[in-house]
Design a protein around this nucleic acid. Structure first.
Length: 617
DNA sequence: GTAGGGTTAG
């Protein structure tokens, strides 16, 4: 408005602008614009303006940029120094210095001032020093809502959600009214432990207090429902607010992705673009993940183009998901290019590329990359080992697999998870060492529910070990499995063995437990069209070519091009699996009226037009 | 003093 009225800003106007942008939702873009405008009129030479600018960059986490500004300042005052110093602290510095300041405050009676005490609680909470935070919290003689919120948020941010909830209930009974900050902390705690029940109670409570139109609260609420697998409830919350901001859009899109509703995620993204809402890096990461899960290469490329247009680059997290997206679509070269171009590669980025290689059948390369990762000093995490063990599994490297399995705890001090045990059972089963796999399952004390037996069962199917298969199948039934494939397999085993009574028992159990047989299906995108294949499917217009040309050894045949195997059902890459959803057990009459399939094909075509219209602009 | 993200999976 000021500029509309032809009043030109002077240097000091910009100082105000730099401070004001920090309150915006997407401060960096506006801040950078203001920065270059200020440079044009030479405003940054002013100590006051320069200090506001470096303060802005510090608050946005861009300490190096702030340092550049600082170094170029012709004049600095105590505020500039303070801003630069506080911006440059790293976490260990903060803890050490925070402790000193804490002592200083105690000595000088500062803690009797509640705001100082609250700051201490917040500081310890943010650093994950919960014991210290609790101590500081309990020492507060007169706690206000901020004190309670600080402590609750501290718990929930340090993944101690149970204590967050306990403290919230204590706060409630003490008669203290919660603020929006309290409720955001509590909702995050609920989503962290998947406590939809508690989350709903908090939801009811906050409606009573009239907080439901507050955008921070609604975002936390949407996230809570999405993380508790109540994506429809999340959507209700999203629709409730008339003007969702980019964070709320991103939460909802991400909520769909987390729940595997990738088509809905892309449709919502299309809608967002129609509303001319600008995405940010986090939005793009979620949307790309949706493309990656769908193996929708064309959509993914378009969104990649948009990422470039927005100037987002291939930093974490976009780089990781882009690399995954290309690898999952069988385009390892581009996946690798993205990976190599990432300026900083964290453990997730390495994991992406390792899994890309292993999924495409390049297990040795995956293991080499793991070594490269270690030599570059990146510490592997538990996902790294899942990928490594899967690579061993694909190549049948049993002994090396054992080596890596032991390495998890021995060399890296990571407690092996169910996933690692599952990989080992998979590795042993695929290698035909079924007895060993069974002994491994029986020897472990880890709480694996059903999954290890299920993996062994499919291994037994591949090697036609009926006896062991029946054992695994019975275990699954005994443990109350709801999965149709286990029952179907067990049924066919007993049929083959002629054990009619047992077969009949399995059938009765299926009816009793209401286990349904869903046909397996896969899909692949070719030239912007999604081809869906269902078990026993003869409906594809080119099904003849798909079925007959496959199996012949001519180079570049349909099998390689379309990634279909002989049965024409399972989507496989040229050198391995990709985009494969369900594997079928026995041939089942085809149900093309399965509502899920309809949704899949229809929504993909719809969303194509949304996205095209969005990116061609 | 508050909200959203990427890597695994039979």
């Amino acid at each position: 408005m000021m500029r509309e009225q032809n009043v030109y800003p002077n240097a000091h106007t910009f100082a105000g602008v730099f401070t004001a942008v920090l309150g915006l939702r997407d401060p960096l873009g506006v801040g950078k614009q203001a920065h270059s405008a200020a440079v044009k009129i030479g405003g940054c030479a002013d100590v006051f303006v320069g200090t506001s600018l470096l303060n802005m960059y510090c608050k946005l986490g861009l300490v190096l940029v702030a340092r550049k500004v600082f170094d170029r300042m012709p004049e600095r005052n105590s505020v500039s120094w303070a801003a630069m110093i506080s911006g440059a602290f790293t976490l260990p510095d903060v803890i050490d210095n925070g402790k000193q300041i804490h002592c200083y405050a105690i000595k000088n009676g500062g803690l009797s001032v509640v705001s100082v005490g609250n700051a201490v609680v917040t500081m310890y909470g943010k650093c994950g020093r919960l014991d210290d935070a609790v101590q500081a919290f309990e020492l507060l003689s007169n706690k206000n809502a901020i004190s309670w919120s600080a402590m609750i948020t501290g718990f929930s941010q340090s993944a101690d959600s149970e204590n967050a909830l306990k403290l919230f209930s204590k706060m409630h009974f003490s008669g203290m009214m919660p603020s929006e900050f309290t409720l955001v902390g509590v909702l995050n705690a609920c989503s962290d432990i998947n406590a939809a029940g508690e989350g709903k109670q908090v939801h009811g409570y906050l409606v009573k207090l009239g907080f439901e139109s507050q955008i921070y609260i609604m975002t936390a609420l949407v996230d809570m429902y999405a993380k508790s697998c109540c994506v429809a409830d999340a959507r209700k919350g999203f629709d409730y607010l008339q003007e969702p901001d980019i964070v709320l859009w991103t939460s909802m899109i991400g909520g769909y992705v987390q729940n595997g509703e990738n088509e809905d995620a892309l449709i919502l993204y299309g809608k967002m673009q129609m509303g001319c809402i600008l995405p940010n890096e986090l939005t793009m990461a979620s949307v790309l993940k949706a493309c990656s899960s769908l193996a929708a290469l064309e959509q993914g490329k378009q969104i990649h183009a948009r990422v470039v247009k927005c100037g987002f680059g291939v930093e974490v997290p976009i780089g990781s998901v882009l690399s995954t997206m290309y690898s999952k679509c069988g385009n390892l070269e581009d996946g690798n290019i993205v990976f190599r171009r990432m300026p900083v590669r964290d453990v997730v980025a390495w994991n992406s590329m390792i899994s890309g290689l292993s999924q495409n059948g390049l297990g040795n390369e995956a293991l080499d990359l793991f070594e490269e990762m270690r030599s570059e000093g990146t510490k592997p995490d538990y996902v790294t080992f899942v990928n490594i063990l899967l690579a061993c599994s694909h190549m049948g490297l049993v002994e090396r697999g054992w080596g890596y399995f032991n390495m998890i705890s021995n060399e890296f001090g990571i407690v092996p998870r169910v996933e690692h045990y599952a990989c080992m059972v998979d590795l042993l089963s695929r290698a035909g060492r079924l007895k060993e796999a069974k002994e491994f399952i029986e020897s472990t004390t880890i709480d694996h529910g059903l999954c290890l037996w299920r993996i062994l069962l499919s291994g037994c199917r591949n090697y036609r070990d009926y006896e062991l298969g029946a054992h695994a199948g019975e275990k699954l039934m005994e443990l109350g499995s709801q999965e149709s494939s286990a029952y179907v397999l067990l049924l066919s085993i007993y049929t083959v063995l002629g054990r009619r009574e047992d077969a009949e028992r399995v059938r009765r159990m299926m009816n009793l437990r209401g286990v349904n047989k869903d046909p397996g299906c896969s899909w692949i995108e070719m030239k912007s069209q999604v081809n869906v294949f269902v078990v026993g499917d003869q409906m594809h217009p080119q099904v003849k070519e798909i079925r007959t040309e496959n199996g012949s050894n001519q180079g570049g045949n349909w099998a390689n091009k379309y990634g279909l195997n002989q049965r024409g059902l399972e989507v496989i890459g040229a050198r391995g699996r990709w985009s494969h959803q369900f594997r079928d057990v026995d041939e089942e009459p085809l149900n093309l009226f399965n509502p899920q399939l309809k949704i899949l094909t229809l929504s993909l075509s719809k969303m194509g037009s949304f996205i095209n219209s969005g990116t061609s602009a």
